[in-house]
């Protein structure tokens, strides 16, 4: 999709162009961040790289300055843009990489593992920024990731592909409902010796102040469980967890016999 490879079979049309045929025309409108292959010059500050990228993509000066300002602000690069790239941390560098790939205002942004190996602050900053450019500028973002939390944070609709077939198309919460309707609720309440008893809910463990409940949301709804619970004890705190998205996806693949 970046115009590097030719397909073995089939066709690929993006933005009315065939990437591997009209390479030069096509790549004008895309930005690419490869996790391991930097586009920043190692020994000079990222800002210098940005200006060279401006020349490579032939971005008009005015437009370039605007985008640059916007990116510096959005990705919080003000402090680091004048420091040689080799002295930046991985997270700082990734933020600069992403800025670098957006200087020419591409319609589509490809990110290859943008959050891999990042510290928590940078990870969240990167996610937030991806959401932001998508909403504000309408940039399409295509990313690969092994981090399911990325997916959870960024996408509404999921299309699952396995062995060249489309397996699933729908929202994340629908997948949850279908493949992992199990919820775990832990509740803390005022001291009581009463046993909790709710129909269709397993009480995994219980003592005088705390209980862990397990239930299937297809059979009994979350608010019903809370309703029952509130009648029996005085609730102080409640936490509800659904099974982690990794498990959901893994389960889907096994269910569909792909692995």
């Amino acid at each position: 999709m970046c115009g590097i490879l030719n397909p073995t079979s089939g066709k690929c049309i993006i933005d009315n162009k065939v990437p591997y045929k009209d390479r030069k025309e096509y790549v004008k409108n895309i930005g690419v961040v490869f996790g391991q292959r930097s586009q920043l010059w190692w020994d000079v500050p990222p800002d210098d790289s940005f200006y060279l990228l401006r020349d490579i993509y032939k971005v008009p000066n005015k437009e370039f300055e605007d985008t640059r300002e916007m990116l510096i602000e959005a990705l919080d690069l003000g402090q680091i843009i004048k420091i040689p790239t080799r002295q930046l941390s991985l997270g700082q560098r990734m933020r600069c990489e992403i800025a670098g790939s957006l200087l020419h205002n591409p319609k589509i942004l490809f990110l290859d593992e943008p959050t891999i190996g990042l510290d928590a602050v940078s990870k969240i900053a990167v996610r937030k920024f991806i959401k932001e450019i998508n909403e504000k500028k309408g940039t399409t973002v295509i990313l690969t990731t092994h981090d399911m939390q990325d997916i959870e944070a960024l996408t509404n609709r999921i299309i699952l592909i396995g062995k060249g077939r489309k397996l699933y198309d729908g929202s994340l919460s629908d997948i949850r409902k279908k493949y992992s309707p199990k919820f775990i609720m832990s509740a803390q309440y005022e001291f009581t010796k009463k046993k909790i008893n709710i129909p269709n809910v397993d009480v995994v463990e219980q003592n005088e102040q705390r209980a862990v409940l397990k239930f299937n949301s297809n059979i009994i709804k979350v608010q019903e469980v809370i309703g029952y619970l509130a009648k029996q004890v005085n609730i102080m705190d409640i936490q509800i967890e659904s099974s982690p998205i990794e498990e959901v996806i893994a389960k889907m693949y096994t269910d569909m016999k792909i692995e």
Partner: peptide
């Protein structure tokens, strides 16, 4: 590959 993603 990087170079191929640029319009030059």
């Amino acid at each position: 590959d990087r170079l191929l993603t640029r319009p030059r």
